[in-house]
Amino acid sequence: MITLTVNGTQHELTLEPDTPLLWALRDEVGLTGTKFGCGIAQCGACTVHINGVAMRSCSVPIASLQGASVTTIEGLSPDAKHPVQQAWIAEDVPQCGYCQSGQIMATAAFLKTHPAPTDAEIDANITNICRCGTYERLRRAIHRAADMMKA
């Protein structure tokens, strides 16, 4: 039995230890905001924070997470008012929206280590795939969120 904390609530997981965190979150914890896109850590749709670090949850077995603290898109902020979420709304970023939980979680973690990111730093660190091609607005929203967090 793996015990971990998800969005501040403790959960005891009954799934096999090799189960990726993605499927434990979606199928056992019941949080579906974290998405399945590729299963091989390529696309980033499943990005969550594990002990504050952005990770692609499709490739993290729960066996490695005993006692860990996980934050998903549902727990990023209590009222969906995290600066990244506000910036996403202000720039009207999502189209289909399927990848955006991952994009937002990747960005929220990235801005903690890069509070004033350059475009090159964004390119090197935000590598999630968006098939709708929202990159133009996504880049603007990252800069906007950085500005909001500075203010």
Binding site: R26, T32, K35, A80, P94, Q100
Partner: peptide
Amino acid sequence: MPRIDVPPKVDGSAKFGIDAQ
């Protein structure tokens, strides 16, 4: 006009087919 489907797409609450439970 901002798209009405954007707010639920930034907090994980928007439901896609794969999210049915």
